[in-house]
Amino acid sequence: MTINPTIALGDARVGFRGRIAALDLARAPAAGLPPAELERRLIELGFVEGATVELLHQGLFGGDPIAVRVAATTIALRRREAMAVMVTDQP
């Protein structure tokens, strides 16, 4: 069994496909919200462990914000908040 490395969604490139492994709020210290609130907002928009993600688009300046396909919904968010979403490229 191979161990797939996990990366932060905030570091992923356009075209990345994978699954959400965990929400790690400590990884997003620059986010505009307290960790507990950011976690709830992410979950409300469907960022739950096991959901498939695909990074579809990014903005012009600093590749920010990003548009992410989460399961069957497309969500736009900034990379600094997406740092809290840990993803693996395992199908």
């Binding site: 620059a30 986010a31 505009g32 919200l33 950011l38 968010l77 900034r78």
Partner: peptide, 12 residues
């Protein structure tokens, strides 16, 4: 500097 995060659904 840090403000409210931008999180928005992009509908079809």
């Amino acid at each position: 500097t840090a403000g409210e995060p931008f999180m928005l659904e992009l509908p079809d």
